[in-house]
C-alpha cells in the first residue's frame, strides 16, 4: 500500500470514455425495470410483498446506474468503499431506530 499507488488508483478502465452501446443496453434495462415495477404494483402481493419487490427493483436500478453510468464498476477500491459507507451508515441509523421503535 505505497503512497504512489494510491494517488492515481482506479480500476484500470476509468480513463476510457464510456461505451455508447453499453450505456444504451443499460438504459434499456432501466426502462424495462421501470415498466416491470409499475406493472407489479397492480398485482396483489400483499403490503410486505410490494415493499420487497419495489425495494428490490429500485435497488437493482440503482445498482445499474451506479455500476455503469456512475462507473463504480471501473473505479478502484476507494470510491466503492465510500459508496459503501453511505449505505452502511444509513443501515446503522435504521437498525437502531427500529430496535427502539419495535420494542418500545
Amino acid at each position: 500500500m505505497s503512497a504512489r499507488d494510491e494517488r492515481r488508483e482506479d480500476g484500470g478502465r476509468a480513463l476510457e470514455p464510456p461505451s455508447v452501446v453499453t450505456s444504451l443496453v443499460v438504459l434499456a434495462a432501466l426502462l424495462a425495470l421501470t415498466l416491470a415495477t409499475v406493472a407489479l404494483a397492480y398485482v396483489d402481493l400483499g403490503t410486505v410483498g410490494h415493499v420487497v419487490v419495489g425495494l428490490a427493483i429500485a435497488g437493482a436500478k440503482a445498482g445499474l446506474v451506479m455500476g455503469f453510468f456512475m462507473h463504480l464498476g471501473h473505479e478502484g477500491r476507494l470510491p466503492r468503499l465510500f459508496a459503501g459507507f453511505g449505505f452502511t451508515w444509513l443501515a446503522f441509523l435504521v437498525l437502531f431506530v427500529v430496535i427502539d421503535v419495535v420494542t418500545r
Binding site: W89, F92, F96, I99, D100, V101, V102, T103, R104
Partner: peptide, 22 residues
C-alpha cells in the same frame, strides 16, 4: 462513536432493550 447515541435517551421513553444495547 456512531453506535452509542441512544445513551442520551435512557430516560426519554426509549425502549428498555434499546437502552441496554446503547
Amino acid at each position: 462513536g456512531f453506535l452509542v447515541w441512544g445513551h442520551h435517551m435512557f430516560v426519554s421513553g426509549q425502549s428498555y432493550l434499546a437502552s441496554l444495547v446503547f
